[in-house]
Design a protein around this nucleic acid. Structure first.
Lengths: 153, 153
DNA sequence: GCAATCGTACTCGGATAGTTGCTGTCCGAGTATTTGAGG
DNA sequence: CCTCAAATACTCGGACAGCAACTATCCGAGTACGATTGC
């Protein structure tokens, strides 16, 4: 999985602590990340409708939706794409008694088992939102929000 | 995820239908796969203790353990490695109020959420064995074992 | 003094190289079989 | 006919290219702010 997922998730939580738009360069400065590359990841989140971008001075990125409506799965899918990690290429169609024209993703027992596992993974990620993470962090270290706001201002 | 995982899983199920060792070239011929590359994947399964290799004429690969003792997770881990797909690089340690010497994999709320999801994925894969898949296939298409044995002999 | 206009600085956005890991291939080490000769 | 040994063919195993994707960077389009000039 791309390393940008980690950066994007932390940036979303940080953005949930400030109101207005924050430039990508400042978001990157918090963790000493490559500014232009983080910008690229945030662009993908904009295309997915998670963030909104504001050009020009006083511009930057801000959350487009309520943090409680942004699941971790949304962020992962925005960056990694909707396809599963395990890709069934229907090799059964090239085997004995197989039909090359059939899509075996819904028939192959192996494909179904792998899909069931990925479904469990997606279910866990879909059940956890940016708001949940923010709440957990605020409970663990109550002074984190203020520190982040200071670093982002 | 590597495409070789699919090949390895199908090959393990096929090996569960025959007794003796089968050369990699013949296993690859069933689905028209690159023989040498499949050989590479099977070598990894040997290193993991899932398969056993027999050199020389009449040699090949055979299952080292009972099919009921080989989970899908075992095969995936043997090929992809034990590390998680989401890798926490502890960027919190480079942020405000962070300690660069601390490993945040057990403290960062984001890392914990991602790990919980991967744990659910691993649990599903660990609960499903090669024997389970073989049984499912035999129920769906009872003549598959004979077809595979013919293709492998 | 006030307003309109021009210039400037700052931001995102997409286009452009570098690097790692997956994909595919090839040849050598080792072994069981086969073949031949010798007893 | 039986035994032994050498040749042979077949297998795995690791070392060697090719390619796609991730990583990283740079420059241009567009915008808001501020300075400047004219009224």
């Amino acid at each position: 999985m791309s390393e940008g997922v980690e950066w994007a998730l932390h940036s979303c939580v940080n953005l949930a602590w400030v109101g207005g738009p924050v430039p990508a360069a400042r978001l990157a400065g918090v963790y000493d990340l490559p500014p232009a590359y983080l910008n690229k990841q945030l662009q993908a989140l904009v295309r997915a409708g998670i963030l909104a971008s504001v050009p020009g001075p006083r511009g930057g990125f801000r959350l487009e939706r309520d943090p409680a409506e942004i699941s971790l799965l949304d962020v992962v899918v925005a960056l990694e794409g909707p396809q599963d990690a395990f890709r069934c290429t229907s090799i059964l169609g090239r085997g004995p008694g197989g039909d090359p024209t059939v899509d075996y993703r819904d028939h192959c027992a192996i494909s179904l088992s792998m899909r069931r596992a990925e479904l469990a993974w997606r279910r866990e990620l879909a059940a956890r939102t940016v708001a949940d993470v923010r709440r957990d962090v605020e409970r663990t270290s109550p002074d984190a929000p203020q520190r982040v706001r200071t670093a982002l201002t």
